[in-house]
Amino acid sequence: MMDLSIANFAQIIVACLLIIGLMVGNAVVMVYIERKACGFIQRRPGPYEVGPRGTIQAVCDSMKLLGKQIFIPGNVDWLLFFLAPILAFFPVLLLFLPIPFGKFLTGMRVDEGILLILAFSGIGVISNILAGWSSNNKYGLLGAARAVSQAVAYEIPMIMALLSVIFLSGTLNLSEIVERQGSWPWQWNIVCQPLAFFIYLVSLVGETNRAPFDLPEAESELTAGFHTEYSGMGFALFFLSEYANMLLVSFVCATFFLGGYKGPFLDGFWWMFIKAYLIMVFIVWIRWTFPRVRFDQLLNINWKWLLPLSIINLWVTAVVLRFV
């Protein structure tokens, strides 16, 4: 592990500040991309009036959200009600720390980086339960229950898919996993682990509660699921953390399967961001293409297909690595 000197501490503080900036900026940019992409797919312009081609729309939306009254319904559990959005937002900060944005651009170099990410991403689920439970609302509670069973289910194939890449590179350190891959696309892990990449791609959609797997917040049946009773900043924090989680899984995907910060011609953090945002755009694309699945379908996809496939993939990887 690392030594906790003043320099390291300062590095972590600076990294945290930069990550908060990244999270907020990402939410604003993604809201714009999401609404624009949705518009184009439905053959309309999307936001258009505020600023040149609607670019300031997302900023205006966030300002509106900041200025909103925080409305608290009766019979809520106050402590948990206020704790839940904070618990949703701040652990995500920690998750970004071990991500290698560039060769030297890492918040915190830890040997067990991916372990840290997988362990602390569970706190997000706790915040969903707390939000659903404390708001004393049947929709909230149902949304929370769905969020938990979904997150628990999709975490397993996700970890299995990552594990086969970890077997391949022999390390849990994210920077080293990137170092084991080359600059050109045929040197990336996706070439030898296409099935793992596919499984990870499906389960990251399930893990971040995005459509078509957005059952915890299904608007048409649960109004908004676990954050039904949240308004103003409480809702904004959930919103921010949702987009930050999306960015995080995209970064992990880019690191594990797409060569991280390495890319043709010139390695650097730009490749990392380009890859991550391409994955984000893909997630947006599937959101506006596919209808929401039913809950039993959601769990069937996971337990009957993704889990056996990921176990087979892991097993084959292990056998090939041992005997070839």
Binding site: G39, Q42, R44, W285, T289, W305
Partner: peptide
């Protein structure tokens, strides 16, 4: 399930084509 997977790709190609084709609304 493989057929279902193929139909997902077909759906993506349709929305992708719509994404690139001109808009139908007027400002």
């Amino acid at each position: 399930n493989l057929k279902g997977l193929w139909s997902l790709l077909v759906g993506l190609s349709i929305t992708g084509r719509f994404f690139l084709s001109p808009q139908r609304t007027t400002h």
